[in-house]
Design a protein around this nucleic acid. Structure first.
Lengths: 244, 244
DNA sequence: CAAATTGCATAACACACGTTATGGACAATG
DNA sequence: CATTGTCCATAACGTGTGTTATGCAATTTG
């Protein structure tokens, strides 16, 4: 895995070894780039999905909002992830997509997408696999929300984010840039801001994690993984990937 | 929508009008049928996905189990639903599939699946749409688990099941066969059995629902929908489908 | 046909987590 | 450069939901 490659290529490289042709195709597919400042709704709930794109840079999240204002964050979207993939079959999205940091998306035209299956069947498979992975992450998210304690939920989510970042080379140690607010964590994990705060304080006091600046350090990944029963196989990685 | 048709055909008919050719293809695609008695694991967590199939009859659910024995039910699988769709790209499943009632599955061969895109592009699209729907239901499930009260969760799930059953013609009134135990509801909704019991008792006392035999009656669907902010558009149906 | 298990029910008690209130550091804004 | 808002922090208190115990009818099992 070379430095300087786009996150998509690093992402696909995890699935299989890319041929030069496929590599070129992936580099060429990126249509016009769309940039966005932080805290902008890029796709709105109940509105048409405007494009298919690959995240080149930045963090985002998908969320649903209830009439009374309560918000549920469904998933975090990191560099190398795809958005809007279901545009062709479900033109109107049931959830919104919001940027957390400044972001850069590489859009893909509808014609490129529909030509994919015929021209690059292995890449089409890889995309299918990525969308299967998205479902698998939602399954794990349901497990977190339904059957984990607050403490476990926090630890589990932090480990998932760390693992996904390492998977595309966005992170190479146990410290990484962490732009999520406590409110976002609360809305992702089905908890109150107060309680997220308590859990983060506890984990810090126990020296399992620490914050400096806007950076998070996982000080004892094994203890965290045991605490949360974290097993990254659902991310399409082998069991001990997190402990390398 | 005619009686006696297989649930798959009724399901696909909701998406678009099937040609005679497509109808024949769908009827022919059903390979060997697999039947199962209640409470059997048909697919096991961490084991290869043995086949792709359409549910012809019966209720099932997908679930994950934690090391300490706690269980999270991810989704309920009803007649007309597809299972094992990701087999080709993710051979090992991250969750199990269990039958609730006696079930009948119509399996589809791998060659049929891979020929689908070329031979029946509209059916392939419909399947893609069904898998997008599965993701949308997981999103709604996350919303239930993370940001609804126990009372709302119960009402919302009952309405979802009712709507899905009506969608394939399994149910035509507000009363339907309901094989879920309180334990299953608890494990689906992230609650304790005791609390599910409390909520069901309350809803019964308020005459919003009632049970006779193993049949559930929704006595006031509008009140339930308002209570739970239920809006079936995420099921690919128009907003007021539930109130027809 | 016993025996064991499952599903449902009621009650008392416990606690994990939510709510509300308040303040301070910092960043964004006019 | 005030001003406003955001994010984080600490504290006291309230409650929705979990836990444990127990019984009984219906079902499954040997």
């Amino acid at each position: 895995m070379e430095a300087g490659e786009s996150p998509v290529i690093r992402r696909f490289s995890r699935i299989f070894t890319l041929t030069d042709d496929e590599r070129r195709w992936l580099e060429a597919v990126a249509g016009p780039h769309r940039t966005s400042s932080p805290r902008r709704d890029i796709i709105q709930q109940g509105r048409p999905i405007p494009f298919v794109a690959v995240v080149q840079d930045g963090w985002l999240f998908r969320y649903k909002r209830r009439e009374d204002g309560r918000r549920q964050i469904l998933s975090f979207v990191l560099p190398g992830d795809l958005v809007g993939l279901h545009r062709r079959v479900v033109p109107v999205g049931g959830h919104a997509l919001q940027s957390i940091t400044p972001t850069r998306l590489a859009t893909m035209s509808d014609t490129q997408i529909s030509a994919l299956a015929a021209e690059q069947p292995r890449l089409a498979d890889a995309m299918f696999r990525l969308s299967a992975l998205e479902l698998a992450m939602m399954h794990e998210h349901a497990l977190r929300l339904g059957r984990m304690s607050a403490r476990e939920r926090v630890a589990h989510l932090l480990l998932e984010l760390w693992t996904r970042l390492r998977c595309t080379g966005e992170c190479t140690s146990t410290r990484f840039f962490f732009p999520l607010t406590q409110e976002m964590l609360a809305d992702a994990l089905g908890l109150s801001v107060m309680h997220i705060h308590r859990m983060l304080r506890d984990l810090q006091n126990e020296e399992l994690i620490s914050f400096e600046d806007r950076r998070l350090t996982l000080r004892d990944t094994e203890a965290l993984a045991e605490l949360a029963e974290f097993d990254p196989t659902y991310l399409g990685l082998r069991r001990n990937f997190a402990l390398e």
